[in-house]
């Protein structure tokens, strides 16, 4: 199972800083994703996990530092080369982002039609192959509105791997799924990664699932990496931040309360209505 024998990095993030409306999201973030691995990036809500995927995909530009994917510095690529790079990346959005006016078959065929000039017969075979991998060959005629959340995510996954990318990014793939659908997605991420020789980046806050599939875990918070390691390392560690997150404790280094003046002072404020 351990495919981390190749330590050659596919994605490296160096000294990354990013601000949204003056508010720092990342400061000096450093991480690497090894080729062929499943890397989980974990963190609380609002810790900028999705923003990180946007930075890797080149949809946002960092204020400082650099994101390198397959040897290319993403932010410095001209649009044409950036699009060429994105063709080799798949991305699974939390909301599935399927095109609602196309049926399942056409959604999976969409990247092929946009980027290749393959004959219709070949597209047909490829689409059915991808749908077979996610177990939805029989649902090819349905529209996104007719599918359940788990099926939507599987179709989106089939679409993400339509062009056989070198890497797939998953944005919260486990959120809002029933246990069975969740199990299916967990299994698919691992299997597709190994069968197709891809690299996977999974952004999530679901501790158990992340530990099940990931080869390596980064825990981010306050704009930097708090802890990193294999799932086993993470479970063993004594660092209080990690313990709080992995154990799901309500209060700890990550405070329960949003920063506020003292409760007592606030109640006695003269400007009460």
């Amino acid at each position: 199972m351990d495919r981390r024998n190749s330590t050659e990095p596919l994605v490296t993030v160096r000294d990354l800083a990013f601000y949204r409306d003056e508010r720092p999201i990342f400061q000096d973030l450093n991480l690497t994703v090894a080729k062929g691995s499943v890397t989980a990036i974990m963190g609380g809500s609002g810790s900028g996990k999705t923003t990180l995927l946007s930075l890797i995909g080149g949809r946002l530009v960092p204020a400082r530092g650099a994101v390198t994917v397959a040897g290319e510095v993403v932010a410095s690529l001209p649009r044409k080369l950036l699009f060429a790079l994105r063709r080799r990346m798949g991305m699974l959005f939390q909301s599935s982002a399927l095109l609602t006016d196309l049926d399942v078959y056409e959604n999976v065929a969409f990247p092929m039609r946009e980027h290749t000039r393959l004959p219709e017969a070949l597209i047909h075979d490829l689409v059915l192959m991808k749908l077979e991998m996610v177990g939805l060959r029989g649902a090819r005629g349905l529209f996104p509105a007719e599918l359940s959340g788990g099926m939507l995510r599987r179709v989106a996954l089939a679409r993400a791997i339509a062009l056989d990318p070198m890497m797939v990014m998953y944005d919260e793939p486990f959120t809002g799924l029933d246990p069975i659908s969740m199990g299916v997605i967990v299994k698919l991420i691992r299997e597709l990664n190994d069968a197709l020789g891809m690299t996977s980046i999974v952004v999530t806050h679901d501790v158990d699932e992340a530990c099940t599939i990931a080869d390596y875990i980064y825990l981010i918070g306050e704009g930097r990496v708090i802890a990193e390691g294999t799932p086993a390392d993470m479970k063993k560690t004594d660092a209080p931040e990690v313990r709080q997150f992995m154990g799901g404790l309500p209060d700890g280094p990550v405070a329960f309360h949003y920063p506020a003046p003292r409760y007592f002072d606030d109640l006695l404020r003269a400007d009460r209505p």
């Binding site: 995909g57 949809r59 699009f83 060429a84 994105r86 063709r87 990346m89 991305m91 959005f93 939390q94 909301s95 982002a97 399927l98 095109l99 609602t100 969409f110 990247p111 946009e114 980027h115 989106a156 679409r159």
Partner: peptide, 14 residues
């Protein structure tokens, strides 16, 4: 709103 346009961008479709 449903990230379909973002999804297209990530599939390298303008």
């Amino acid at each position: 709103a449903t990230e379909q346009l973002d999804g297209m961008e990530m599939m390298a479709v303008d």
